[in-house]
């Protein structure tokens, strides 16, 4: 791939990030809320006695502490500089914990659960969809409609059903949490199994609800590919079924799926929110919910920026990888 394309793509990514950061900065400020005052008012309410003077003094000192007393353009420049270093400042709710610390704790859970399940759903769904075209039999004949049903049900509903039957009634799986409250996080095998055990239901709900979409899309592409001239020629050469299925069929049909995968991975964190809430999973989704509830704006900004970054990063990676998968886009094919 030529260098200009990579550079163009990188510049575009930088612009998207800049734009998102700017919006992230100005939108809350136009909305007119004052996070510090709100936070202190909350504290004051719960704490009981506090004079109005003391409160405004505290607000002023906090404003200074967070740099909110500076002119807006200076705040903006500071903010951009912070964003460039991915410094999201301090959480207001958990002061003096840094936002990065909170995100750092939550991110591995989300990435571990969501990316893995998205990839599993992508691979399994694509394979099943392709297979349903390749071997038309009773098994694939019933599998496809079933998967379409699951695709139509939102995943939090699937999740609730799984919790009710497998978790609550049969008690095969825990109903929530990232690991048992009784074990301590450590790099032991036991703990890893515990985590996996807890991830089963949320993972199942995501995979079940999204696998059908992948399968359907893949089936459509595979039908198209099966009708191509190169398939006819492959058959006329007596190529092995295995080669025709993988190197000719799936290899070509998967290309548009990869584009969709990029979009799906970009949506991972957004998608995580509901699943994590349903399963009380300690990921970014849950953190975002708590931050919004607690008016913890800096944490919200941090999470939003992480969202933007993942989307930018994933689409960038895919854009760079795609030409490796499809030689036709490498140098502006005819």
């Amino acid at each position: 791939m030529d260098l200009s394309r990579i550079i163009k793509r990188l510049v575009l990514t930088a612009f998207v990030f800049f734009g998102a950061a700017t919006l992230n900065f100005f939108l809350p400020r136009f909305s007119g809320g004052d996070p510090i005052a709100e936070r202190l008012a909350q504290l004051g309410d719960s704490g009981g006695t506090m004079s109005a003077d003391a409160l405004s003094a505290m607000i002023a000192s906090y404003n200074e502490r967070f740099g909110l007393d500076l002119p807006i353009w200076e705040q903006y420049l500071n903010y951009l500089w912070d964003m460039m270093r991915l410094d999201f400042g301090y959480s207001i709710a958990y002061f003096p914990t840094r936002v990065w610390t909170l995100i750092g704790q939550a991110l591995p859970w989300t990435i571990g659960l969501m990316i893995t399940t998205t990839l599993i759903a992508f691979l399994a769904g694509s394979f099943l969809g392709a297979f349903a075209v390749w071997r038309k039999n009773a098994m694939t004949g019933t599998l496809m409609p079933l998967m379409m049903v699951f695709a139509a049900v939102p995943f939090y509903l699937v999740g609730l059903l799984l919790i009710f039957f497998l978790g609550y009634q049969l008690r095969w799986f825990p109903t929530g949490g990232g690991f048992s409250p009784l074990v301590l996080p450590s790099w032991e095998l036991d703990f890893a199994f515990n985590v996996l055990y807890h991830a089963c239901l949320p993972a199942a709900s995501i995979v079940l609800s999204s696998i059908g979409i992948w399968a359907l899309a893949m089936r459509g592409m595979m039908v198209t590919v099966a009708g191509q001239d190169y398939m006819t020629f492959a058959r006329a050469r007596g190529l092995s079924d295995r080669r025709m299925f993988f190197s000719y069929g799936i290899r070509n049909a998967i290309l548009p799926q990869v584009t969709t995968l990029g979009l799906a991975l970009g949506q991972v964190v957004t998608g995580a929110i509901l699943v994590e809430i349903v399963f009380s999973y300690p990921g970014l989704g849950n953190l975002l919910l708590q931050a919004v509830r607690g008016a913890d704006y800096f944490t919200v900004y941090g999470i939003v920026m992480i969202l933007v970054l993942t989307i930018c990063f994933v689409t960038l990676v895919l854009d760079l990888i795609y030409p490796l998968l499809d030689p036709r886009v490498r140098q502006g094919a005819p």
Partner: peptide, 18 residues
């Protein structure tokens, strides 16, 4: 291919594009 071989209209996409 071994005994009988087929030559398609190759100007169309008869070869695996990838």
């Amino acid at each position: 291919l071994r005994t009988i071989s087929y030559i398609p209209q190759g100007a169309m996409n008869s070869l695996n594009p990838v």
